[in-house]
């Protein structure tokens, strides 16, 4: 068990680090899913966000990376 967070500086730093880790995980996981043939709606549903949001955030990068994307 991690120690109880009594120092707000530690708690706030943890929030920043978790956001960064979440962003890194999202980039890697979305790319892996699309390489495995997942569709945008499937990825969006798994992340709990809209298809437009996931497309806007990742499509340009994945297209430039040469990932072949399913349209639906």
């Amino acid at each position: 068990m991690p120690p109880e967070l009594s120092d707000p500086a530690d708690a706030l730093a943890a929030v920043a680090a978790l956001r960064r880790l979440a962003d890194q995980l999202e980039e890697a996981a979305v790319e892996q899913a699309m390489r495995d043939g997942w569709s945008w709606p499937e990825v969006a549903e798994a992340l709990g966000i809209t298809r437009q949001a996931v497309h806007k955030k990742h499509a340009k990068r994945l297209i430039e990376a040469g990932v072949s994307l399913r349209r639906r």
Partner: peptide, 16 residues
């Protein structure tokens, strides 16, 4: 680690 998370626990490939 202060919230019990290990960055090393994840082994997804580095995104392009």
């Amino acid at each position: 680690q202060t919230v019990g998370v290990s960055a090393a626990a994840y082994h997804l490939p580095k995104p392009t």
